[in-house]
Simulated scan of single mutants.
Amino acid sequence: MVPLLTTPLPVPHGFTTRLGGVSQGPFQSLNLSAATGDDPEKVAENQRRALSLFGHPPVAGLKQVHGVEVHLVKGPGVWEGDGLLTKTPGLLLRVGVADCYPLLLYHPEGVVGALHAGWRGVVGGILPRALELLEEMGLDPKQVHLAMGPGIGGQCYQVGEEVAERFAQAGLNTFTPDPKAPGRYLLDLEGALLLQAERAGLLRERIYRVGLCTHCEPTLFSHRRDQGKTGRMWGLIMLPR
């Protein structure tokens, strides 16, 4: 059985771990990306197992580019960008991660979203962009429920001065000097996302955090911990049929 991390988000959703699949070696066991160098047949079986949790629905996915492009989609397919929104019941939205944060959104007037948020997406404002699109659709973004999946924690995410400066320029001062490495900083991506959510008016009681660090937790894939040789997990959400 494939375990799924869930939150109080009131629609079908979840975040996969690395457990419950058939891949071997550094991809053990539920690697969901064939672009990692894993056996494509094993990846296909892993994907089948993950999708079975939602009844094998049609899927909308992304060719992720660490940007802020968010697409409003009506049916299955693959879009270049890092965010999806849909009003289509039964259409499963999918993002892939292995340190970046998977964000799942639900608006009570019948919209769900899935976002891929690495440091470039966070500092570029992919979450505010998705909320702006909801507003352009005539919906109040302050009603959004937001689920934040596992991602690399601030205590484990070391970055250089240039990245810290980008966050400072964006008004996201969620970084501190790394006491063990002069000239380097520890960056709290989740803290930056929470700050953006609060600035957009989202209510704290509608923000749900899984609260697991991919770098620290061995049951999760981590690109940084595993030096690039690792699998990918999915963040998944859909409106009920």
Rank of each mutant, 00 (worst) to 15 (best):
L133T: 09
P179K: 09
E109G: 12
M148T: 00
F167W: 00
D99G: 13
V95R: 07
Y101F: 14
G160P: 08
G113N: 06
P108L: 13
T174M: 06
L134D: 07
R129E: 15
L115H: 10
V97F: 10
Q169N: 09
D178A: 13
V111E: 01
C100I: 11
D140L: 02
L172Q: 00
P150K: 01
L134Q: 08
A147N: 03
T86I: 04
G149S: 05
L134C: 00
P150W: 05
L103M: 13
E132C: 11
V95T: 13
N173K: 12
P179Y: 10
P182T: 03
V95F: 11
W119D: 08
V95C: 04
E132F: 08
V111S: 08
Q158V: 14
V163T: 15
L172D: 05
A117L: 14
E135P: 09
V144G: 08
G125C: 06
Q155H: 14
Q155N: 12
L131P: 08
A147S: 15
P128Y: 12
A168Q: 12
G153C: 11
L133R: 13
F167N: 05
L139Q: 05
G191V: 00
Q143F: 02
Y106R: 08
L133I: 15
L131S: 04
R166W: 12
H116F: 03
M148D: 06
G110P: 08
L93E: 00
K87S: 00
